[in-house]
Design a protein around this nucleic acid. Structure first.
Length: 316
DNA sequence: CGCTTTTGACCAGCGC
DNA sequence: GCGCTGGTCAAAAGCG
């Protein structure tokens, strides 16, 4: 799917013609001639109309600015996407080697029955069953612990088996396994005493600059610190007063933009722009939101309908 | 002094 | 039953 083919912000006509519906309305002159009793009311209406026109022009200008902001974000996304594609194509071969090397003789023997469950993952990932646990305890009816595996590239000279994921870990053992001369370190989550999560860290036998971290279980406590990367597939945030949430699922990215809430004031919109530009909001998050917005073919229609509906509501 | 790391010993599962 | 292997325990050492 080519993103640029979907992205056409110029066709996203956010600069609606706010004055158009005014042309269709009866002119003030005609109404004044119709009855003199309503003269005072027409004066008030004229003031309201001019205020409305001013408001609509301001909204149009804001829409134009938002369009430009969206265009910039989409350009950044395209650039990052190209970099990601380039990096991914480089790493795929390495990961395949890791996957092959990680299969020990014991696993190979037992994996005849469950080899189809093996997964090849880049970054935080999950598998329905653990290839190691299933070989160790094949009689278990259910897998108690949630297994995920993370590959981290580090300096080959760095002998410390430390994977910075934001959690606090206590090392409780180290073992040299048969299939890998590099020792395997065993960690337990020390942030919460009752947290059942365990972590195994071992260098890849093929590429010692890559550290393989295997997580077992789920944390039963909030994240102690902000991690470098998010392992979850769902993200949700509220930017200022704009109710906006994004999520990425297996079925694809979805976005919930609550336009039913009251329209933010000018100060709130300015605050929102400041927050988007502010460094406390990660750039990747803004770019992700922009990409999700522009990827959604229904977004343009929904956004245009919401704006036009707002205008019609005000005109009534 | 308290916490973390190290490391040898111990235990359990599995195959033969 | 025995040996191999991965995983865990716990005492000692290290560190701030």
């Amino acid at each position: 799917m080519e993103f640029t083919s979907l992205l056409n912000t110029t066709s996203l006509d956010l600069n609606v013609k706010p004055l158009r519906f005014l042309d269709d309305a009866p002119s003030p002159k005609q109404e004044l001639e119709s009855t003199s009793i309503e003269l005072g009311r027409h004066v008030t209406m004229r003031q309201e109309r001019s205020a409305l026109i001013e408001e609509l022009n301001r909204v149009s200008a804001e829409n134009k600015k938002l369009t430009e902001l969206l265009t910039v974000m989409c350009e950044n996304y395209t650039e990052l996407r190209n970099q990601l594609m380039e990096q991914t194509s480089k790493n795929l071969g390495v990961v395949d080697n890791i996957n092959t090397a990680a299969s020990s003789k014991r696993k190979a023997e037992s994996s005849i029955n469950n080899n189809n469950n093996r997964t090849t993952n880049i970054g935080p990932s999950e598998s329905s069953s653990s290839d190691e646990d299933s070989s160790k305890k094949p009689r278990e009816e259910h897998i108690k612990a949630k297994i995920s595996r993370v590959y981290v590239r580090t300096e080959a000279s760095d002998t410390s088996l430390i994977v910075k994921d934001g959690y606090q870990w206590r090392k409780y053992g180290q073992k040299v396994t048969r299939d890998n001369p590099c020792p395997r370190a065993y960690f337990k989550c020390s942030f919460a005493p009752t947290c059942p999560v365990k972590k195994k860290v071992q260098r890849s036998v093929e590429d010692q600059s890559i550290v393989v971290a295997t997580y077992e279980g789920e944390h039963n406590h909030p994240h102690p610190t902000k991690p470098e990367t998010t392992s979850g597939s769902n993200r949700s945030l509220t930017l200022g007063t704009v109710p906006c949430s994004t999520s990425i699922s297996s079925s694809g990215p979805t976005i919930t933009l609550d336009l039913t809430k009251p329209k933010p004031s000018h100060d709130e919109m300015t605050s929102l722009r400041d927050k988007i530009d502010a460094p406390e909001i990660p750039k990747y998050l803004v770019e992700q939101m922009a990409s999700i917005l522009t990827k959604d073919p229904n977004f343009k229609a929904a956004f245009a309908a919401a704006i036009s509906g707002k205008f019609l509501q005000q005109s009534n």
